[in-house]
C-alpha cells in the first residue's frame, strides 16, 4: 500500500491557492503536508490530506484538473544524517527520486518524507531491507 497524494494543476494567477484551500476547508478535508512545483506559467500543488477521495471529488466538481498519485512515505529519525541514509539506500538500488518533500509529525523526534519514484514496490523493498520505516496512509492521520 502506498500513500495517496492529491496533485492539482494550478495556473499562476492570484487567488488560485486560496480557492483550493477554502474548498478543502469547507469540506472538512485536513491537509497534513503540501509542496508546490512551480514553473513560469503554472504550478503543481501536491497535497497529503485526510480524505483523498473526497478531496478529488470536490476539486473535480469545481472544474479543476486533479489526479491521485501513489507516493511513498518514509519515517526517519530527526537527527543529522537521517534523510541521507534513506536517500543513499534508494540511490544504491538504482532508484531515482522525481521529487520529495518532508513534514513533521506530532511524535517528537520523527519526520516524514514523501517521495515520488517510478516503481513504488522496488523502492519499498529496498527501504525495508535497510530497516527504514515505510509508512502507510492511515499512519499519517492518527
Amino acid at each position: 500500500m502506498a500513500i495517496k497524494q492529491i496533485s492539482i494543476f494550478v495556473e499562476n494567477k492570484p487567488g488560485r491557492l486560496a480557492k483550493i484551500t477554502s474548498l478543502l476547508a469547507e469540506n472538512s478535508v485536513d491537509i497534513r503536508a503540501l509542496s508546490i512545483a512551480d514553473t513560469t506559467d503554472y504550478g503543481i500543488l501536491r497535497l497529503i490530506v485526510s480524505d483523498p477521495e473526497k478531496a478529488e471529488k470536490v476539486l473535480k466538481e469545481a472544474k479543476m484538473t486533479v489526479s491521485i498519485t501513489h507516493v511513498l512515505g518514509i519515517g526517519i529519525p530527526d537527527v543529522p544524517g537521517g534523510f541521507s541514509v534513506a536517500i543513499k539506500t534508494l540511490a544504491d538500488a538504482g532508484i531515482s527520486v522525481e521529487y520529495a518533500y518532508a513534514f513533521i509529525t506530532p511524535d517528537a523526534g520523527k519526520a516524514y518524507v514523501i517521495i515520488r519514484v517510478e516503481d513504488n514496490d522496488a523502492a519499498k523493498k529496498a527501504l525495508k531491507d535497510a530497516n527504514i520505516t515505510v509508512i502507510e496512509q492511515d499512519e499519517i492521520f492518527i
Binding site: F9, T39, R46, T65, T69, R116
Partner: peptide, 15 residues
C-alpha cells in the same frame, strides 16, 4: 486548457 489526459504530478512530464 489542461485536461486529465495531459495532466501529471510531474513537471517533467507536463513539459
Amino acid at each position: 486548457e489542461m485536461s486529465s489526459e495531459m495532466f501529471s504530478d510531474s513537471v517533467r512530464k507536463i513539459e
